[in-house]
Design a protein around this nucleic acid. Structure first.
Lengths: 120, 120
DNA sequence: TGCTTGACCTAAAGTTGCTTCAGGCAGGTA
DNA sequence: TACCTGCCTGAAGCAACTTTAGGTCAAGCA
């Protein structure tokens, strides 16, 4: 598959995909004889996972470490699992934080809906 | 109040607060004769709101526009309300997106918890 | 009294995670 | 043939901060 298709499927932009490759997040994507990237379906799956990790706030540096685990032997599986679990937790924290902010916004909005008084 | 207290109360870092002021997000914070910032409780409230907006993804440029509305006359109240409502919606979208990512992570984690098979 | 420490100040440079731009090649089409 | 289109690269630009360098001033203390 070509890069534009992958962008479509993963929701990442073409330049983000190139940037991720250059950053060492997805090692050895094949190239055709014309120099163009050729994505396998495993590449796609991996990029979908990367996109989820990134969207949920994992920094590139940790993603790179995570990619390193995947690139090495199966004995890193427990580590991969631990990393994902830790990240899942931080995601939940983040979600709690957003809920809290939503409450603040809602309170603010309530004051607009009340018959005018003391609108800061 | 001094800047370190405000940082504590709002969860923003001291340099972020200075940065926000320089970016025109909180106009005219008073200064003491020594040149130090003096925060009123209104300033604190405003920064708490800014922090919520920022945490939930509002870009600085839009926050500046929003601050502009607050700085001007009361007839911008409907606009302020509209802006907050729109942002509330985008926050919900974001939350839905995070939920979706969490599902992806959970699926991935499930595969680690199953008796080993095909761990990509 | 002199000296250090700590909290504040500014301006400027650095960091992260992208996006945009400039310039280039290869293949298809009017 | 000229022109698109889609890909490529490297470099510059941008957002939102953080860090650094250098400076002021009051408080504490030997």
């Amino acid at each position: 598959m070509k890069i534009s298709e992958i962008a479509e499927r993963t929701g990442l932009s073409i330049s983000t995909i190139r940037f991720y490759e250059k950053s060492g997040l997805c090692p050895r994507i094949k190239r055709g004889p014309d120099g163009k990237r050729q994505f396998s379906s495993a590449d796609t799956d991996w990029l979908v996972l990367l996109a989820s990790l990134r969207t949920t706030g994992m920094p590139i540096s940790r993603m790179r470490a995570f990619a390193g685990l995947y690139a090495s032997a199966d004995d890193t599986i427990p580590e991969r699992r631990t990393a994902l679990l830790a990240h899942r937790q931080s995601l939940e924290d983040r979600q709690a934080e957003l809920d809290q902010c939503r409450t603040i916004l809602d309170l603010k909005l309530l004051r607009y809906d009340e018959p005018m008084k003391d609108l800061t």
